[in-house]
């Protein structure tokens, strides 16, 4: 309960900080809407000509794209504070966070939720709901499975961000790690079936973009082998466990950098 109260307090602070520059929020939102809108329209326009991409119909391809946007935006909404971690490290401020009587993740992982991304997240979820309603062969069970697999993807996203924080402690390098993560995730914008076999394997088992984005949509479309549900769950749990172990390991090597 105490942690929830603290989380709420940090979120309120973050919101107030964001609202200090209303003009920037407007520009940021318009820019993000524009980028999404242009690319979305382009994919839709292209698919009306090509009719099929790696065996998927236009609406299905758009669902892959929307699922990618949901996962990507969720990461930015929840874990925006990770990108500010380097500043805490090099200034020595991280020392004071470690000394506080709460888990440091409360501050450095989820302590700076980005309200701008929440607005965009609602838009993407709304569009995904619309496109799912347009599919004829989807049952309620498949929708539930899609949501469960999305939750699974969020666990993977959280694990990756914990690993980035741990790497930040060891290398004081955070921004590039986040951008690399985001660029690799972009490879999941479309079904990973369109890549070569080796790249498909890497994007499934080494960098689990396929499990984060392609698997949930395939589950929804009922074209997924049931074993993938267990593989996805196992991957998420293994990543969560290993990233927490990596965090503990990196903390042992932490030494104050500034202050």
């Amino acid at each position: 309960m105490r942690h929830i109260r603290l989380f709420w307090l940090l979120t309120t602070f973050s919101l107030k900080k964001t609202l200090m520059n209303p003009m920037s929020i407007v520009i940021l939102l318009v820019g993000k809407f524009l980028r999404f809108g242009m690319f979305f329209l382009f994919v839709w326009y292209l698919m009306t000509y090509t009719k099929v991409l790696s065996g998927f119909t236009p609406n299905q391809v758009l669902l892959f794209y929307l699922t990618f946007m949901i996962v990507d935006t969720f990461a930015q909404f929840m874990f925006r504070e990770v990108s500010r971690f380097k500043r805490l490290l090099v200034s020595g401020e991280f020392d004071s966070i470690l000394l506080k009587p709460h888990h440091p993740f409360l501050r450095i992982l989820v302590g700076g939720m980005d309200i701008v991304d929440l607005v965009l997240l609602c838009l993407y979820v709304g569009l995904a709901v619309y496109f799912i309603s347009q599919l004829t062969s989807v049952s309620f069970v498949h929708i539930l499975l899609y949501m469960a697999l999305l939750m699974n993807a969020f666990v993977i996203v959280a694990s990756i961000h914990i690993a980035i924080l741990s790497l930040g402690i060891l290398m004081t390098e955070v921004e590039n790690s986040i951008m690399i993560y985001r660029d690799v995730t972009r490879l999941g914008m479309f079904p990973i079936d369109m890549y070569q076999k080796l790249l498909q394997f890497i994007l499934t088992f080494v960098l689990p973009v396929g499990i984060m984005i392609t698997v949930p949509v395939k589950g929804l479309l009922n074209v997924l082998d049931p074993s993938w549900y267990w593989i996805s769950l196992f991957c998420a749990l293994a990543l969560l466990l290993s990233s927490n172990l990596f965090w503990r390991f990196s903390l042992k090597y932490y030494q104050s950098w500034g202050g």
Partner: peptide
């Protein structure tokens, strides 16, 4: 890391258009 990001962007577009 910076160059790796550029290569990833190129790979995405290359495979996307090859699939199209």
């Amino acid at each position: 890391l910076w160059r790796l990001r550029q290569i990833l962007s190129f790979l995405l577009m290359h495979y996307f258009w090859s699939a199209v």
